[in-house]
Amino acid sequence: MSDLFRSSRIPLILIWVAVLIIFGDYFFGGVFNQAFSTLTVEWTVIIANIAIIVGGISILLRSIMVSRRSSVDIVERIMHGWQVVIAVFIFAIGTAFGTTSGTYNWLYTYILLPSWRTVYTIIIFFMATASYRAFRARSGPSFVMLICGILVLLRNAPIGMRIWPGFYSIGTWILDVVNMSGGRAIMIGSVVGAVSLLIRILLGKEKILGESE
């Protein structure tokens, strides 16, 4: 029995059922009972939420273990311990008063949100400098890409039109002809790749299904 649950058969059957229901609804919507596909999508959300609970518990257990490990740096131990305290505290507030309560909203608006915004602001400066450092002409294709990037930048920036109005036409041509045709080729390839991956999953030959090899 346990072998049956550990094998890839059950997930594979579930995948087949879900694929047939979703495809059936998409292509044969008129004659297909839409309730099936709605139910499948609802269950996807439910299972994803269960995965969040499993993930949350794993993360909490790991933080507790790290905070108790003597070989770890003291600052990191305190950080992990503090993380556990905060998580349990917010979970308790959310459970006791509800996620729409004033207390929970206060915690979200005045503690979590400012913290995220602060981190975001600090990182965004790094992003600007990272772009500057990363965009180097290290090879022929990257040189062409860099030139195209500069031309599109000058098309979009107001100063570009002031320098030379021709930047608009060149930038538009790069976006509408070169960029779009290349992008569509990649998109067609990606869709074919996704179909191929789906077939390999349906045949049980992708590693994500457990003991498939």
């Binding site: 990649i186 998109m187 390839g189 990606s190 790749g193 996704a194 991956l197 590693k207």
Partner: peptide
């Protein structure tokens, strides 16, 4: 693009 899907 598709190379990512074919990576496995």
């Amino acid at each position: 693009g598709e190379e990512v899907f074919a990576a496995g």
